[in-house]
Design a binder for these strands. Structure first.
Lengths: 328, 328
DNA sequence: TTATTTTAAGGAATCGATTCCATACTCTGC
DNA sequence: GCAGAGTATGGAATCGATTCCTTAAAATAA
């Protein structure tokens, strides 16, 4: 492999001069520039980033920690992150925890030893060990999807949006509303969305029926099984169900279809998450769209800001919209 | 930041000893080990990868070049790659060309300057500049999705699988089959799938109607517009259409539904790509499943093999299966 | 014409690891 | 009691860049 020394020798200058040329700082004569340029062209020389970052303490790499890559939400977020990073000449080192949320801590350490300039964390919890790991980090970390007190975060308005959706359902005349959620270690998805559901029903003096509140994981199967439990519970059927993700909703709809239960006439369904699947399934799903790609981009911008100066902790409550379709 | 020198000083040994301890090679006494361990524990020291890889010429990072991240196919492939890399203690540097296929060359260079140990290329063309860039590369590259002659490749059996699907449609009684494809710079998707279509019809003495052969891009909209053109073309309607991706098929189905054309009774639809959308759309889509996650894993394994010895060029024709559902 | 600034370029230290080599001590076995 | 093997450790060179400092020539000002 050609190094800066080879280039220096071939161009008959010192390696300091080559370095000055490469970084366009300091003085380099036109003659020298031409010779260096020519030699670089001929040899196809590319500076070693390892050497460079050993000196400069910058790698131009941002670490991204995801729970899972193969979901539409995740890939949209990554797409948004990628756009911004690429525009700013950063590369993305992607790691996934496969939903094992203790791994988030492990990866924060790992990424730092890889000398990333910053970390984007799509967090699934806000427990103490994680907060501690973040506190001990020597590089800026920005959270996406959870409000982590000690660092800048891009937060989805889970409570607000879910509340609005439930309001919309009530306004449409549904009075017996069920809920399919996930475990509560996840404050944003597990707790906030459920709290909004309960609060909104209560506000309208509607009964919160425990038999219609299910807790599963993020899978389609989980949605299917949860809906099955709701239907097979002793109590009456609900006339509407809110699912915390569109995947869960798809599973739930699947069960209803098998049982010949009409959506939305017998039971209406709403959810969070604007996947193409939610859009093209029948009936098309009424959902909250958290504009994930944009959220990813904003988080990346926030991180880059921190990398280039401003150290203030910023909290951005990201935008959302209701996509009213045919399932409610 | 703490360095190996700090550890050496604090543990009262030389930095050679610390290094030997870290890499568990050479002699280190139990006493020394304990002291070093303790100091590392206390300081939270993590060795600098930049320094390490400057010496060893290994970064433990694999570059991945994708056309686009936010498709289900891509994210499945990435998921498979990620699994294997993580098992082997490699990290993944992800880049996307946003479907600008000249960028593939740029990224091959960029990733090398980042000193990646190897590159996984989800190629969309096999043109000379790309082949040249691959030839000039100093790290192993494995291709996925296209057969690139000079390097190991994991290849989808595009011709075979498409042929089998068309056979299946013919066997089901369809005689007037249309085709929605993509541009032909992409040999695998653009050329092979079309060739299989034409060959299979010809083999069965069926007419290949030019009005029913469309060329678009990979989007849902493109599928919608292509189907519109087919229906609005002067000639009779086809009784079945094959789309080269499930996204395209979804768009095509959308148009048919709007026109109250029954699927599969009036027109049957088949495609390539086993997305969840294809599974849950109505009618559920009969597709070729190229088992993308597995393909990604195999490509990653192939690359790791090359990294640890064997230099032979391997070609793996990946498995596939037909998922017979309700759209044909 | 001399003093000062600007331009140009090389030398050497440095970043944080790894690794080869030399040195020294402790055991065995004869 | 001594040769030779095994164990333990430190010194120094090295990887490929950046960057500060010094020197020197050229350009400008006084």
């Amino acid at each position: 492999m050609t190094t800066i020394n080879d280039i220096a020798k071939l161009a008959e200058v010192s390696r300091s001069t080559v370095s000055r040329y490469l970084n366009s700082n300091g003085y380099v004569s036109e003659e020298a520039k031409k010779r260096i340029m020519k030699v670089i062209e001929e040899t196809g020389y590319m500076p070693s980033q390892s050497a460079k970052s050993l000196r400069t303490k910058k790698t131009g790499v941002i670490g991204v920690i995801l729970p899972k890559i193969s979901t539409e939400t995740a890939s949209r977020v990554v797409s948004g992150i990628n756009k911004v990073l690429q525009q700013n000449d950063y590369q993305m080192l992607l790691t996934t925890t496969s939903q094992e949320h203790k791994k988030e801590i492990e990866f924060i350490r790992l990424l730092q030893s890889r000398n990333v300039d910053g970390i984007l964390l799509l967090a699934t919890n806000t427990e103490k060990p994680l907060i501690d790991a973040i506190g001990n980090a020597t590089v800026p970390i920005v959270a996406l999807g959870q409000d982590i007190p000690t660092i800048s975060s891009v937060i989805y308005p889970d409570y607000l949006a879910t509340g609005e959706m439930i309001e919309y359902m009530i306004q449409k005349g549904y009075q017996h509303i069920g809920f399919i959620g996930v475990e509560e270690y996840d404050p944003a998805v597990g707790i906030e969305r459920k709290r909004a559901f309960v609060d909104t029903l209560t506000k309208h003096q509607l009964k919160v029926n425990k038999d219609w509140i299910m807790q599963g994981d993020f899978s389609i199967e989980s949605g299917y099984n949860s809906m099955k439990s709701i239907i097979n519970s002793g109590s009456d059927r609900p006339d509407a169900v809110f699912a915390v993700t569109d995947q869960i909703a798809v599973g739930a709809m699947q069960f209803l279809k098998e049982q010949q239960i009409q959506i939305p006439n017998d039971i209406a369904i709403a959810a969070t998450g604007a996947s193409r699947l939610a859009q093209y399934i029948e009936p098309s799903l009424t959902v909250i769209d958290f504009l994930n790609e944009e959220a990813g981009a904003i988080a990346a911008e926030l991180l880059i800001e921190e990398l280039t100066g401003t150290k203030a902790i910023k909290k951005i409550i990201h935008d959302y919209r209701l996509l009213v379709r045919n399932s409610v």
